[in-house]
């Protein structure tokens, strides 16, 4: 029983990270209508930037602020230099472009930071763990859970309660209408891509002290982010959050009893849900 509780807690922690990744990807796919295969690479860049910033400034918290902003800026550049020219090109070329971009970023990480993995410890404040009664749990993971949760809520509030957020949601629903309203849709796309990149970057930065860094670290996350989006419904932000938590917990619970299947279960859950509800958990279409 204690094991099950511990695993559920753990599932929520990883699920929050999945939700963060899925939310960013859902924003990009929803607003811009492109398959972003570079989302995993942006995640990896976030983690590596964190380590470099912490190395230079010697402060984890500054790193956690600066690194994702760096990834968002990278997102701006990518949108401005490439993605912008591909809105009319069809998904096949968008896919080729973002996949090529992922290859480039992944290899640049190896060129800049080397092929050997890097281990990064949490800040001193968050080292060690606490006894929760049913399990001993690392403080840093509790922090990640809270931080990722707060980010998810903030993004949610931004989209629901602010004017620009409302425009962005409208952009997911109906692009013609948004441009008829005289809103700079190009600007909207750029902001959405940068925001999506920011979320991937901060997910990567938060993950660095847990999983360590390796150049290929984004690949697993990419697959999971796609599952989250497909499961939650395309462009459905609430769905992405719920789907992230669902597969995080499913994975952890299965790992308690049948570790070998714990990765496959992510995809099995997706297939099962889509068989019953082809539009995803919360999709309308």
């Amino acid at each position: 029983m204690n094991l099950l509780l511990g695993q559920i807690l753990n599932g929520i922690a990883t699920g929050m990270l999945y939700a963060l990744m899925g939310l960013g990807l859902s924003l990009i796919t929803g607003v811009l209508n492109i398959p972003n295969f570079a989302h995993g690479a942006l995640f990896a860049v976030g983690a590596y930037l964190l380590v470099s910033v912490v190395g230079v400034l010697g402060n984890f918290w500054l790193g956690l602020i600066v690194a994702p902003i760096g990834v968002a800026l990278l997102g701006l550049v990518i949108e401005w230099a490439g993605v912008r020219r591909l809105y009319a090109a069809g998904h096949d070329y968008q896919l080729l472009f973002t996949f090529g971009l992922a290859l480039i970023l992944n290899e640049l990480i190896i060129v800049i930071w080397g092929p050997v993995g890097i281990s990064h410890l949490p800040p001193a404040l968050l080292r060690g763990g606490v006894d929760l009664g049913f399990t001993f749990y690392p403080k840093y993971r509790l922090f990640v859970m809270g931080m990722a949760g707060a980010l998810v809520v903030l993004t949610w509030l931004f989209l629901e309660k602010t004017k620009y957020g409302a425009i962005m949601r409208a952009g997911i629903e109906n692009k013609e209408m948004v441009s008829l309203l005289g809103i700079d849709i190009q600007m909207l796309f750029t902001v959405a891509f940068a925001l999506g990149a920011y979320l991937a970057g901060i997910a990567g930065a938060l993950t660095a002290p847990i999983r360590g860094l390796s150049p290929g670290m984004g690949v697993d996350m990419l697959g999971i982010a796609f599952v989250v989006v497909a499961l939650g419904g395309l462009g459905n932000l609430l769905g992405a959050i719920a789907a992230g938590l669902l597969i995080g917990v499913a994975q952890a619970v299965v790992a308690a009893y049948w570790t070998e299947a714990s990765t496959a279960v992510i995809f099995a859950v997706m297939a099962a849900v889509l068989l019953v509800r082809p539009q995803g958990l919360f999709g309308i279409r």
Partner: peptide, 15 residues
């Protein structure tokens, strides 16, 4: 680091 060149080739083809 050949995948880097492959990635660049993809981007060039697309653009």
């Amino acid at each position: 680091r050949w995948p880097l060149l492959l990635g660049v080739a993809f981007v060039i083809v697309v653009l």
